[in-house]
Design a binder for these strands. Structure first.
Length: 482
RNA sequence: GGCGGGGUGGCCAAGUGGUAAGGCAGAGGACUGCAAAUCCUUUAUCACGGGUUCGAUUCCCGUCCCCGCCUCCA
């Protein structure tokens, strides 16, 4: 394994060196469960999922932790609007999140810690900081003294003195310094709260990740992931809380993904331009969605629009078509000729090792498919060597696209096959009629039958040995906004 | 204002100090009754102006434009 990752802290690509040879610990900032996942969340999920899969593919044992923020201002506000307990909201959207992640073919976390399940760990960390005079309690709130941590700003490359001393700082009357941030918030009427040494209250946002990451992965865990928009203040504060209290290194590598854009704007709840992830998946399908997510390097912005999703759908068709064709013409007793596939495997690995260059990795798969398609004709004619080559290429495509990139080609072909089995007799009957029509040179009838089948998603292809057919993934009609 | 990222063919998108992967779309051709799928051919001097260099799209400086963060945010 010679993976190189761009590390936000060092602002450079650095060789990935795990804390412990052979295993990797990953922590990913999870959702605040207050509404449905949107397409932007999906990007974080896919980027971290592919990183995780690639590490495992490279032979490492991965421990993947993603938290759930189940107590937060927005959850409380939503609960008030709906007149239910905040826990109802948190439970509902935790379930929804997990379901959406399943639909996106995201491997579930090994550990999914809840903020509300780690009050003791958070309080212990806060107390430690107070004991060290790096935090202070005021009227039941506890704030972190930013200026007492000399490393503050190292992740986001900010100088403490340059930071905007905003006018709209919350709790500015109680903070010693406007830059200080809350780790514990005193209970307000009708809010969920937990007892603490500083009075009843609830945790601030940043403290949960510092506490839970170290609780489940230990200090100096390998990779911390999150959206680029979390670099400051969230990740900066996570580092500050842990390193101010314990010294050492909080996380060894920081991987951040770029934002999804709608037109020129970031897709976000506050802008109000979000598209629900489930809705996008229902429209476009898993394979096209994941290929779209992988169509740009993970740190650059990615625009969600119809044209790009259609491109991704076309790519998905090309990949699945090749695998289907290869499997159709290869006889059962054929064994794959791996030597043909190996250069493609090496090309894929080379670019993935380079900071997970997914667009280049997909390009490598395209070259694999081109190679395979090129051999298809001879293989179909019975050339044994070419059959072995084609089989190896199809196997490799499925291995890389599915196991590493999570595109789900095999699953899709399986679904299509099930459908084909069910409608087979019907289609065969129509094709018999069409065959007769063609023999009679009645092309009008023949084409009408084919058009009808096409309209229902059945692709008919005429070959030297008669017509073959299969169920194709439907391409959605073009709509203004995906 | 501070910090960071970016401007590559019609569109998307990699990449490199020695004249630029891959995909989509388009055009032409092969195959086909016509299609579909597939194959072949075909389209760029890399925002602009300087500089360094034998040579820059790739390094440096400046200009213009776009985006993100600086408040909740994947």
């Amino acid at each position: 394994m010679s993976l190189v990752l761009f590390d936000t802290l060092r602002r450079d690509k650095v060789p990935f060196e795990p804390r412990e040879a052979g295993s990797v610990s990953m922590y990913v900032c999870g959702p605040t469960v207050q509404s449905d996942a949107h397409v932007g969340h999906g990007r974080l999920a896919v980027v971290t999922d592919v990183l995780r899969r690639y590490l495992a593919f490279s032979g490492l044992t991965v421990t993947f932790v993603q938290n759930v923020t189940d107590i937060d201002d927005k959850i409380i506000m939503r609960a008030r609007r709906e007149k239910v307990d905040p826990a109802v909201i948190a439970t509902r959207y935790t379930r929804a999140w997990n379901r959406s992640m399943d639909l996106l073919n995201i491997q579930p976390p090994d550990i999914q810690p809840l903020a509300t399940g780690h009050l003791l760990e958070m309080q212990a960390l806060i107390q430690e900081l107070i004991d060290q005079d790096k935090a202070y309690a005021v009227d039941g709130d506890v704030f972190f003294r930013v200026r007492r941590f000399e490393g503050y700003g190292k992740l986001s490359r900010r100088q403490v003195d340059d930071m905007q001393q905003g006018d709209d700082v919350v709790d500015s009357d109680r903070k010693e310094d406007p830059l200080d941030f809350a780790m514990w918030k005193s209970a307000k009427p009708d809010e969920p709260s937990w007892p603490s040494a500083w009075g009843d209250g609830r945790p601030g946002w940043h403290i949960e990740c510092s506490a839970m990451a170290v609780k489940h992965l230990g200090e100096g865990f390998d990779i911390h992931c999150g959206g680029l928009d979390l670099v400051f203040p969230h990740h900066e504060n996570e580092i500050a809380q842990h390193e101010a209290a314990h010294g050492g290194t909080f996380a060894r590598h920081w991987v951040h993904n770029g934002m999804v854009r709608m037109g020129e704007d970031k897709m976000s709840k506050s802008v109000g331009n979000v598209v629900a992830l489930d809705e996008a998946l229902a429209t476009w399908g898993l394979g096209p969605m994941r290929l779209w997510y992988l169509s740009a390097q993970h740190r650059t912005p990615l625009t969600f629009d119809t044209e790009r999703l259609r491109d991704a759908s076309t790519v998905h068709q090309r990949f699945t078509t090749f695998v289907r064709s290869a499997r159709q013409i290869v006889s059962d007793d054929t064994s794959p000729d791996v030597s043909v596939a190996d250069p493609h495997r090496a090309a894929f690995i080379a670019v993935m090792d380079d900071d997970l260059n997914a667009p280049a990795a997909v390009a490598a798969l395209h070259e694999l498919v081109s190679d395979g398609n090129d051999r298809l004709k001879k293989a179909a004619a019975g050339d044994q060597a070419e059959q072995q080559a084609v089989l190896a290429l199809a196997d490799l495509l499925v291995e890389l696209a599915d196991r590493v990139l999570g595109i789900g080609i095999d699953d899709w072909l399986g679904e299509a096959a099930a459908l084909e089995a069910r409608i087979g007799p019907l289609v065969e009957g129509l094709l018999d009629a069409r065959k007769q029509a063609r023999a009679d040179r009645d092309f009008e009838t023949a084409d009408a039958i084919r058009d009808q089948l096409t309209a229902t998603g059945v692709v008919v292809e005429d070959g030297p040995d008669g017509a073959t057919w299969y169920v194709a993934a439907p391409l959605p009609d073009p709509t203004p906004d995906a």
